[in-house]
Amino acid sequence: MRNSLYKSIKYLVLVGLFFNLETLPLSAQDDDVSLDMEFRFKTYKNADKTRSFIVEFYGTMEKERVPVYDAEIRFFNSTEDEEVLIGTANTTQEGISNLTLPADYSYIKDEEGYINVTARFEGSGDLDSFEESLAVRDLNLTLELNESEDGNTITVYANMIDNLGEEIPIEESDIYFYVQGMVSRLPIGDDWLEEGEYIFDFPNDIPGDKNGTLLVYVEIEDNDDFGNVTQTATVNWGTGPRLESGKVRMLWSDFGPIWMIVLMSTLLIAVWANIIHSIYNLVRINQEGKELKETT
């Protein structure tokens, strides 16, 4: 698989770029514009062993990405002499078509164990047909979590599945480790996996969520033979949040410092006592006035 495959983090960037579309100046309305069309095809093996086939279909105009929306993409599992339709999926507003097949889906493989898949857009109207193929070997990533006082480790086993369904350790591959953050994944290490096995020393200073729980991603990325393969594990190796919820200072709270409330109330009571004293005197003056009137 030579075509570049996108990690899901890049996928996010794509969405970002999409939302960044700018208003075109009005004068562009009548201009002929030229678009460079892109049709990208890649495959992911997800943690639940399902497999996704993803096509990105868009044009580029003055560095701006214009997605093709609602285009029907057909996916074929092909050998040298036959083509089997395995599914269709329409592109979203982001120009992405995603076909995900279950873990136990039986693909037709060639002698070397490759699954050959072709994604095709038939073309309609003014838009030409596009097509791209890839070949991928099925691979299982297995994680073994080891906790010890010297530090926690993750042992990764990478086994290829041959035509007979036997697992054979792969020779070598890049291997990447991430933990899931709020919106993206933090890379925590990458190395070279050999003979189907790699032991990863898990860093001991990652906070994780409030319980110290971490979602770890182990990935093979953009591999010529295996495409993208992801495996995940939930570990409780985080140190917990760096900060505790801070105390709110009284000036910023809803109620305010006690002394302020006491002081203000005291002052107000003093003033109002005075006002009431005056009104009381006025009432007494009034009463005396009435009495005077009655006597005269």
Binding site: L35, F39, D126, F130
Partner: peptide
């Protein structure tokens, strides 16, 4: 064909 041009 995985890329091309489109005049619009």
């Amino acid at each position: 064909k995985k890329s091309g041009k489109l005049r619009r």
